[in-house]
């Protein structure tokens, strides 16, 4: 219980820090960077739900991110829909596409799934790139409006947009938290652990994988729509493999299959990227090997590493305690034996 309390305190402090951040950091650039990081985090949570908790590597998620973003752009600019209606529709549409992709893709296993989703991602990229009349092709898509006011709430200032994105991030984290510690979350983890075992335990793996995949696509499309309304300019590049790679890097550095991983990883890597900005296009010279080395030598990431360390310590403490107890019992027994012997002899 004490651990839970402590955790809650930490969480409250973190949220408070996030809320106070724009008030204390006057530099608009940092607020901008933070907002972008939050958007990435939402997408990475999407990836984490499916890759981290359900065990399938989807390489189409950058594509879903782009569909969410472009759908918002097209619905607001070309179709002239009200912002929030377009926002909801963009997420819904992407999720629907996710259902269809999932229905086919999830029948395939492991490698086939990764290859299949890689190809789906590439198809999405090609379509965005080639369908000039709809997406603007390589020239890009401009003029996406900022989020519309909701009653008295206006999202015109960077700080207001920061809070809007933070709000969505917190909702996503909250959902993930509830999910992971539920029967449904445990079901996903069981599938990740061994699909055969899960099947023989009476779990419909297809149904559960599909639900997890669709929710994960929904998170990613949400991030995409937020990205479109925040950056307000889109190019086909956001559907590209390198975006997928960024998501993966954030997730792996932070810790795949952990709740804190996406936040930790995204913050750390975007911060490091800032420091390494002089590398620009060549940052992959560093991040490529970093990711590869990480997966070989430290596949659990930062959050995963800490969790393991804690578990190990807890286990060690328990063993120590048990050993102490056992030796105390042994001592007591031998004392008793001795006194009995004395009693007999005496």
């Amino acid at each position: 219980m004490a651990i839970l309390e402590k955790r809650r305190l930490w969480l409250a402090a973190l949220i408070a820090a996030a809320i106070l951040f724009p008030l204390f950091v006057a530099n608009g650039y940092y607020v901008h960077m933070m907002t972008i990081s939050f958007i990435w985090m939402i997408a990475v949570y999407g990836l984490n739900l499916f890759a981290g908790y359900t065990g399938y590597l989807s390489l189409a998620h950058a594509g879903f991110f782009a569909i969410g973003a472009y759908a918002l752009g097209i619905l607001t600019v070309k179709a002239g829909w009200p912002f929030w209606l377009a926002f909801a529709a963009a997420c819904l549409l992407t999720t629907l596409i996710g259902v269809f992709v999932g229905l086919v893709a999830l029948r395939t296993k492991e490698h086939f799934f990764a290859i299949y989703t890689l190809c789906v991602g590439y198809i999405i990229y090609l379509i965005i790139d080639k369908w000039d009349s709809l997406t603007g092709g390589v020239r890009g898509f401009i003029g996406i409006p900022a989020p519309a006011d909701i009653g008295p709430l206006s999202f015109q200032t960077p700080a207001a947009q920061y809070y809007l994105v933070l709000f969505f991030l917190l909702v996503v984290v909250w959902i993930m938290h509830r999910l992971v510690y539920s029967l449904t979350g445990r079901t996903y983890i069981a599938i990740r652990n061994s699909e055969e075992l899960a099947l023989t335990l009476g779990i419909s793996t297809m149904k559960n994988k599909l639900a997890s995949f669709v929710l994960s696509v929904f998170f990613t499309s949400l991030a995409g729509a937020l990205y479109a309304s925040f950056i307000r300019f889109l190019g086909p590049d956001i559907a590209y493999v390198s975006v997928m790679f960024d998501f993966l890097t954030y997730l792996l550095v932070g810790g795949i299959g952990t709740l804190a991983g996406p936040v930790v990883g995204t913050l750390l890597v975007t911060f490091l990227s800032q420091q390494l900005q002089f590398l620009q296009d060549y940052r992959m010279l560093i991040f490529g090997p970093v990711l590869t080395l990480l997966i070989i030598f430290y596949p659990h990431g930062i959050a995963g590493g800490i969790i393991r360390l804690k578990a190990k310590r807890g286990e060690a403490r328990r063993l120590q305690l048990e050993a102490r107890q056992a030796s105390a019992e042994l001592a007591a027994a031998s004392r008793q034996e001795r006194s009995e012997r004395y009693a007999k002899e005496g």
Binding site: L183, R186, I189, N193, E196, L201
Partner: peptide
Amino acid sequence: HLFEQATVMDNVIIGHRLRTSSNLFDA
């Protein structure tokens, strides 16, 4: 095929999942 990095309890809980019906939304 057990999940080595979880407790025994966490592993065994899922065994009764097939007799339950709560879904994503319930969770």
